[in-house]
Computed example of a mutant assay.
Amino acid sequence: MPRPNQTVLDFLAARRSRPAKTLTTPVPDAAALRPLLTIAARTPDHKKLEPWRFIVLEKPALQRLAERIPDRAAALGIAVEQAEKTVRQFADADLVVAVISRPVPNDAVPEIEQILSAGAACQNLLTAALAAGWGANWLTSWAAFDRPFLESGLGLAPNEFVAGFLHIGTETATPPERPRPDLDAITEWVRT
């Protein structure tokens, strides 16, 4: 019979992202962030392809990205309210880790598996930040999928995209619990 780590199970059962707009300074410095990134990189990675990488965005970089949003939003016909929300996502943040998915050609590892590995890196980083006592939230937005924004703002190569923008900081408010899925409605048991 396995021996459960009840502390970890209790943490995971109560895990709750913190809304990015409620995060503030202080944020983890490089020494505090490095162990979290190390945990994020301990994700399932068939054939050790490392089909993801991290870009740590500090306040000046986030401000620079925020300033690019209005023009890109206008060019794409995005509503002013939605554009402003995306501006705030970057301008109000103090630290964001962009997890970049970068699938590589490999006959043994389908692209979707590599993309899922990048998603697992996002989840590992989110969970590690929360376990370390920080507030954290995994976001995207239309900007995460806009090639001109990604290439000019983040320097991404054509085969790369943002799997997630992980906001990390000090939480200012504990969010209320939200409704969770009905496990019976989403689980099928196959016994034969």
Rank of each mutant, 00 (worst) to 15 (best):
R3Q: 13
Q6P: 01
F11G: 03
L12D: 04
A13W: 06
A13Y: 05
A13G: 14
A14N: 10
A14H: 13
S17G: 04
R18A: 00
P19L: 08
A20Q: 13
A20C: 09
L23Y: 04
T24A: 13
T24Y: 01
T24P: 01
A30C: 06
A31C: 12
A32G: 11
A32L: 08
L33N: 06
R34T: 14
R34W: 02
P35C: 11
L36D: 02
T38D: 14
I39H: 05
I39Q: 14
T43A: 14
D45C: 10
E50P: 00
R53C: 08
F54V: 08
I55Q: 11
V56K: 04
V56G: 04
L57T: 03
L57E: 12
E58S: 10
P60L: 08
L62R: 03
Q63N: 04
Q63W: 11
L65T: 00
R68S: 13
I69K: 00
P70Q: 04
P70L: 08
R72P: 01
A73H: 01
A73V: 05
G77F: 09
E81V: 15
Q82S: 11
A83Y: 07
A83E: 02
T86Y: 00
R88Y: 00
Q89P: 00
Q89L: 15
F90Y: 14
F90D: 03
D92A: 13
L95Q: 05
V96S: 05
A98R: 08
R102F: 02
P103K: 10
V104W: 02
N106T: 07
D107S: 07
D107N: 06
D107H: 06
D107V: 09
A108G: 09
A108K: 14
V109P: 01
V109G: 07
I112H: 05
L116R: 11
S117A: 14
S117E: 09
A118R: 08
G119N: 10
G119E: 12
A121V: 15
A121G: 06
A121W: 01
N124G: 08
L125C: 06
L126I: 10
L126V: 12
A128G: 10
A132P: 00
W138E: 03
T140L: 07
W142F: 15
W142A: 04
W142Q: 08
D146F: 05
F149K: 01
F149P: 00
L150G: 02
L150V: 05
S152C: 06
L154R: 12
P158Y: 01
N159E: 15
V162M: 12
H167V: 05
I168W: 00
G169Y: 05
E171P: 11
E171N: 07
T174I: 11
P175I: 09
P175N: 10
P176H: 09
E177H: 09
R178W: 05
P179E: 14
R180I: 04
P181H: 11
P181F: 10
P181L: 14
D182Q: 12
D182L: 10
L183W: 14
I186M: 13
I186E: 03
W189E: 09
V190E: 06
T192P: 04
T192K: 11
T192E: 12
